[in-house]
Design a protein around this nucleic acid. Structure first.
Lengths: 257, 257
DNA sequence: CGGCATGTTGAAACATCTCAAGGTGAGTGG
DNA sequence: CCACTCACCTTGAGATGTTTCAACATGCCG
C-alpha cells in the first residue's frame, strides 16, 4: 500500500539510469529492452510485447535537434539515453521549457494545443517513440502497464504544478535556487555534504525554463556564489555546498507548515 | 483509435455536468453514483465496486472552506457538484492556484511536496474523497478504470503545461485573455456568436491563478472592455463578444505554426 | 592558438507591484 | 422593500525587480 506512492509515483526516474552518458545506444534492440524493462510489466503477454515492439520507432538525435517527426498525432516518447527538453512556442518567438527529461523518463508530447510543442535533445539521445493513440489502445487491457504509466503521469503532473508555483509567485533568486535544488535531486552526484551537477542545459535553457532572461539567470548564479551556496567551473559544472541553505532561498515551505 | 484522444483525453469534463448548480447533493448514494458513472467502467465487477464504495468519504463544503482532512496522505477527489480550486502555499503567505475544478472533475491532491496544497471550495460542493494509495491499489487490476484515470491525468498535465507557458512568458493582458478563453471552453454558455461566463471565482482567485495582483487583473479587465472584447455585469458575469479576438490577444499560436 | 558561441556585467527602460483612496454590489436586518 | 454595511472591486501615483540594450569576458572547439 505504501510502496505504490514511494516507489513508482514518478513519471521519470530520479537518477537510476541518468549517470549513463553513452551518446546513443548501438542497437534498436538495446533501446527497446530499456523501454521494456522500465515500463512494461514483467508479466505482459508475448502478443502485447510484440505489439509494442512493432509500434515503436527508434530515433537517435544530436544535441539541439528535434528528433520527432511532425506526424500531427500525440506521441509518447521514452528517453533510452541522453537528455531532452520539451519546449512550448508562443507568439513573437517566445519559448517556455515545460520540462526536462533524462534517461529512463517517459514523455507525453501533445500534437496540438493553444501552443505548439517540440521535443529537443540536450545531448545525443536515443529515443523510443510511439503514436499515443495506438499506444493507449495497445495498453487498454494491460492493467500493469497502465498503472506504471499513470504513476509516471501523476509524477509529471506534480512536477508541473511545482513549476507553476515557481513561475507564478517566486523571485528570480528563488527560481534559480528551486531549479538547482530540483536538479540536485534528479541528476546530482553527492559529494562531501554537498552535491555536484553537470548541467546538460545552457543558461538560455535555464532561463526559458524559469521564465527569466539569460542575464537575470547569470546574475542570480553570481549572487548565490557570493552567498557561498555554490561554486561554478566551466559552463556546466555547478557544485552546491549547502542544499539546506539553497532550499531556504528557494521559498519552499518549512516542513511543519 | 481517434476517439481516445478526442473523447476521453481529459482529467476533467468540459461542460457536461457543470451547469448543475445544486448546492450539494442530498444523499451520499447520489454522490457516489455520479462518481461511478463518470469514472468507473460499466463492466466493473461487483466486488471492486463495493471496494470503492467502502473507501469513499463524502464531504459537503461551504464556499471558502477546505473540505479535506489533513490525513498526511495523498488524496483523490471527485467533484460531484460545485467548483473548487487547488491552492499551493509558498513562504511569506504567497499563494498560487494550480488548477480550478468543476462538477465531474477528478483531482489529485498531494499530501507533501516542496509546497503544501489545499483544496478549497469556490461554491457549495459535494465531494467524494479517496486515499490515493488505497484507490490505486483497488484500481490495480481494473484496466478500464486505470485507463479513464490516466486519460484524465494526461489532460490535467496538458492544462498544467499550458499554465506554465502563461506564467512564464506572457504579459498581464495575455494572461487574462488566456484565462477567459480557457474558462469559455470549460464553463461558457454560447450566446449569439459570443459566450457568457458566470465566474465562480473572485478577482483574487484569478490573480492567484495567473501570478498577478488583483489590481493588475482589474486593470486588464478594463482594457479588454475598452477594446470591445468583453462586457461585465456584476462581479461574476462576463460576456465575451469575440472569442477569436480574445485568442489573438492571448498570444496563442496561429493554427498553422 | 585563434575564432566564436556562450556567458557575464553594467546602465537605462518598462511592466507590474505596492500603497492608498474611493466606488460598487450582494446580502442583511429593519 | 429599502437602506445599511462590509467585502469586493476599481482606479491612481509612485516604488521596484526584471528586462532590454550594449559592451566585454570566458572557455570550448577546430
Amino acid at each position: 500500500m505504501t510502496q505504490i506512492k514511494d516507489v513508482v509515483l514518478r513519471w521519470s526516474y530520479p537518477q537510476a539510469m541518468s549517470s549513463d552518458h553513452s551518446p546513443g545506444l548501438s542497437t534498436t534492440s538495446e533501446q527497446f529492452d530499456r523501454f521494456a524493462s522500465a515500463i512494461l510489466p514483467c508479466g505482459i503477454c508475448d502478443r502485447a510485447f510484440a505489439r509494442f515492439r512493432s509500434l515503436a520507432r527508434f530515433d537517435g538525435a544530436a544535441t539541439g535537434k528535434a528528433p520527432l517527426a511532425k506526424t500531427g498525432e500525440d506521441q509518447i516518447v521514452f528517453v533510452a539515453s541522453g537528455a531532452t527538453k520539451l519546449v512550448a512556442h508562443a507568439t513573437h518567438g517566445r519559448e517556455q521549457i515545460v520540462a526536462f527529461h533524462f534517461a529512463g523518463d517517459l514523455v507525453s508530447v501533445p500534437a496540438r494545443a493553444a501552443h505548439a510543442y517540440t521535443l529537443v535533445a540536450l545531448q545525443p539521445c536515443a529515443l523510443v517513440t510511439f503514436p499515443a493513440a495506438a499506444f493507449m489502445l495497445a495498453a487498454r487491457a494491460e492493467a500493469g502497464l497502465l498503472n506504471e504509466v499513470l504513476q509516471r503521469a501523476l509524477r509529471a503532473l506534480d512536477r508541473s504544478r511545482e513549476k507553476s508555483i515557481i513561475l507564478g509567485r517566486k523571485s528570480a533568486q528563488e527560481r534559480v535556487a528551486s531549479f538547482l535544488a530540483t536538479m540536485a535531486e534528479r541528476i546530482g552526484a553527492p559529494q562531501d555534504g554537498g552535491c555536484v551537477l553537470d548541467l546538460p542545459m545552457s543558461r538560455r535553457d535555464i532561463a526559458d525554463s524559469l521564465g527569466l532572461t539569460i542575464e537575470t539567470v547569470s546574475r542570480q548564479f553570481g549572487e548565490l556564489r557570493d552567498l557561498g551556496l555554490l561554486e561554478t567551473s566551466g559552463r556546466s559544472i555547478v557544485k552546491l555546498h549547502d542544499l539546506a541553505g539553497l532550499d531556504a532561498r528557494a521559498g519552499h515551505l518549512p516542513v511543519a507548515a
